[in-house]
Design a binder for these strands. Structure first.
Lengths: 345, 345
DNA sequence: CTTTGTGAAGCAAACGGTTCCATAAGGAGG
DNA sequence: CCTCCTTATGGAACCGTTTGCTTCACAAAG
C-alpha cells in the first residue's frame, strides 16, 4: 500500500541507501541522481515512516507535556492553554511534535512519563508546576532524560527550569498599592506546598517591610487558586476591625472571587478595596472593574520552555551548570481595580 | 544501554519470541515461563520500545488534534482548553496518547496532517471547526484515514462527526427570551463561512417565526467570535429607532463585548437589554451580571470525539453509514442577564 | 511399538529506514 | 601505462519487535 523507500529506489533504478541519502541531503550524491529521485518521490507521494526512522535514529522529534492532575480538574485553565500554546508554537517551529499527557495521581503520572521516555516515544518532557519533591523529577534525573520544569524547585539544583521572579513580581505588585497610598494591605496566598505561593508571599512581605509598614498576621490568608478562596478571604477581611484597604491575590481567579463577594455586599472596587493579582489571564480585563494584574508572560514561559528543552535535546553537552534557570520578565498592568488610594473613609 | 527484549530473553534463558508472547499474553505460554520472564523483566526494568512495536504493528496508539489557525491567535481559547481536556481524558483512558498540532494556514495544516498520518506517527485525527470545504478533510477521506470532525460539514456526508444541534440550541435560547416577554430580539452572528454561525442563525429565525414575531433585517448583525464584535453590535443596536430589548449572541465572548459597551453607556442588563449567548464558558458566570448561556457540553464534545475516533480506529468496519453523526445535548443555563422581561420602558 | 495429536518454545523473516564498508569508474600523478 | 585518490553508489547489517512456521517432547490412540 504505502510507498516505501524501496519502492522509490526501484522505480528510480537506484539502491535504497541512495534514496535515504538524497532524503538527508548527504554531500556525496550527484545532483543528477538527487533530482531524479526527488521527482520520483514526489510522483509516488512518498512520506517517510517516522517509526522506522525513530527506531534506528533513537530520536522521535517530539516532546511531551506532563500536566499535573489539577489540570484535569479545570484549575485555572486559561493559564495552561496559554502555556500549551507557547509550547506548541515553538516546538512546531523547531520541527517537533507535542504530546499531551497527564495522570490522575503522581503514580500514574510517573508511569506515563516512564512509558513515554523509556519507551522512546518522546525525546524529552516539559513538567508544569512541580510539587516540592517529585518522583517524576527524580526519575527523569536518575535516567538523565532531557526535561525542563516550568516553575521552580528549591530541592533540585541543577535542573533546567523556566520561571518568573515571583518574589520580585509580588514586590512590585505590593509596591504599586503602597505608592497609591495604601498602608493596610492584605494578601491571599495559594497552597503553601507550591513554591509560587511562597515566593509571592515573600515578595509581599519584603515590600511591606521595605516601606516600613506593619503587616498584621490576620491580613495574610491561605487558599487555593480558585474563586472560592477569594470569596472566603474577602468576607474574612471585611469583617476585620481595621480591615485592609487593598489586597494582593496570588492568582486572578482569586480576585474574581473577591470581586463577586464585594459586589454582593455592595462594596465598591477600588474605593472600598483595591485589588492586584497575578497572571493577567484574558479575563482580567473583562471583569468589572477590570483587575490590575502582574502579567507573567505565560505564552513566553511556554515558548521558552520548549526552546530550552529542544536545545538540550539536540546538544546535551550544556552541562555548564550556569544558565539552567531562565527567568521570564513580568510586568504590572494597572487597571481600574487599583486606580485609587484609600482616601475617603 | 536500554534493556531490550533480547536481553530479557537471554537472562531468562528463552527466546525473544517467548518474551514477546509473555508480554502480549499469548495463550500457549506455560505459567511457569511466564512468571519467570515477568520477574526478570521487572528486575531489569524493561520497557518496550514503542517505535519498534509501532513499526511492525503499523499502529501507534496515539491520535492527533488539529487546531485551526485561529487557535494560535487566542480565539475563544477556553473553548479549546475544555475540548482538549475532554479528548485527553478519554484518550488516556483508552490507552491512547494525544498529539497536538497546528499550522499557520491551511497548507501548513495539510502538511502536518499528511506527515502525521502518512508517516504513521498517529492512527487518527480529530479536526476542530472545519471550514466549508476543506483540503484536510479531502485528504483524509481520499486516503481513508480515521478521523472525526468536531463540528459539522454539510458538504461531506458520511464522515464521522460530533456536534451539537445548534439549530435547536438557538431555538431554545431565543424561545427563552420570548417567554420572558421579549418581542424585539436581535442576533449577533459569527462569520458566515462557519456552519455553526448559520445553524444558530437559523434556529433564531425559526423561533421568531414560530412565535409569530417579526424579525427586522437590521436586528441581525454579523461579526466574529470576539468581544469587539459584541461591542460594535451593541452600539449599532442601541442607536436603532426601535431597538431590540434582548439579543442572542453566537458566542459568550461576544456577550462580554456587549456587556462592556452597555456598561460604558450606563445601560443596565437585563433591564435595558437582556442577553443570552452560547458555549457557557467558565467566564459566563463570572461577569456582572452573569450571562445566560447555552451549555453545549464542550468537555463532553471532546470526550465523545475521542471515543468515536478510537472506536473507528479499532474496528474500521463500522461503515453502516448510520450513526456517523453524534449529537451532544445542550442545555440552557439561565442567569441574571436574561432574568427580566422588557417591562419598564 | 509406531503413528498422530497437542502444547510449548525457537527460528527467522519481516516492518522501513540508516549507515558503515566495499566497490566501480574516472581522473590525476608518477 | 600503472597506481592511487576521489566521488558516487550499492550491499548488508542493524534498530527492537511481532508472528508464521517449525521443531520437539510427550501423551494418547491404533
Amino acid at each position: 500500500m504505502t510507498v516505501t523507500i524501496k519502492d522509490v529506489a526501484k522505480k528510480a533504478g537506484v539502491s535504497p541507501s541512495t534514496v535515504s541519502r538524497v532524503l538527508s541531503g548527504h554531500p556525496r550524491i550527484s545532483l543528477e541522481t538527487s533530482r531524479k529521485v526527488k521527482v520520483i518521490m514526489e510522483e509516488m507521494g512518498y512520506t517517510p515512516n517516522m517509526m522506522a526512522k525513530s527506531l534506528v535514529s533513537k530520536t522521535t522529534n517530539s516532546i511531551c507535556i506532563i500536566l499535573p492532575k489539577p489540570a484535569e480538574e479545570l484549575f485555572s485553565n486559561l493559564f495552561f492553554m496559554e502555556l500549551i500554546r507557547g509550547i506548541v508554537t515553538q516546538a512546531s517551529r523547531s520541527g517537533y511534535d507535542v504530546l499531551i499527557s497527564s495522570g490522575a495521581n503522581e503514580k500514574e503520572e510517573l508511569e506515563a512519563v516512564s512509558r513515554l521516555l523509556k519507551g522512546r516515544r518522546v525525546d524529552g518532557a516539559i513538567l508544569l508546576y512541580s510539587r516540592k519533591d517529585d518522583a517524576v523529577i527524580e526519575f527523569l534525573e536518575n535516567n538523565s532524560y532531557p526535561f525542563v520544569l516550568v516553575g521552580r524547585s528549591d530541592r533540585y539544583e541543577n535542573i533546567l527550569s523556566v520561571d518568573n521572579d515571583n518574589v520580585m513580581a509580588a514586590f512590585d505588585a505590593t509596591n504599586h498599592l503602597i505608592s497609591m497610598g495604601h498602608e493596610r494591605i492584605g494578601f491571599v496566598s495559594g497552597p503553601p506546598e507550591l513554591i509560587v505561593s511562597r515566593d509571592r508571599l515573600e515578595g509581599y512581605r519584603k515590600a511591606m517591610q521595605s516601606s516600613g509598614l506593619q503587616t498584621q498576621p490576620e491580613w495574610i490568608v491561605e487558599g487555593e487558586f480558585l474563586q472560592e478562596s477569594g470569596y472566603r478571604a474577602m468576607s474574612f477581611f471585611m469583617n476585620l476591625p481595621n480591615r485592609p484597604t487593598a489586597l494582593v491575590a496570588v492568582d486572578d481567579m482569586v480576585s474574581f472571587g473577591v470581586l463577586r463577594g464585594l459586589n454582593e455586599l455592595k462594596y465598591k472596587v477600588p474605593e472600598d478595596l483595591a485589588i492586584v493579582s497575578f497572571n493577567n489571564i484574558p479575563l482580567s480585563e473583562l471583569s468589572s472593574p477590570p483587575i490590575s494584574s502582574i502579567d507573567i508572560g505565560i505564552y513566553h514561559l511556554g515558548y521558552t520552555a520548549s526552546q530550552v528543552l529542544i536545545q538540550s535535546i539536540q546538544k546535551p553537552d550544556n552541562n555548564t551548570g550556569y544558565t539552567n534557570r531562565f527567568v521570564i520578565p513580568h510586568r504590572l498592568i494597572i487597571r481600574e481595580s487599583s486606580m485609587r488610594g484609600p482616601g475617603k473613609e
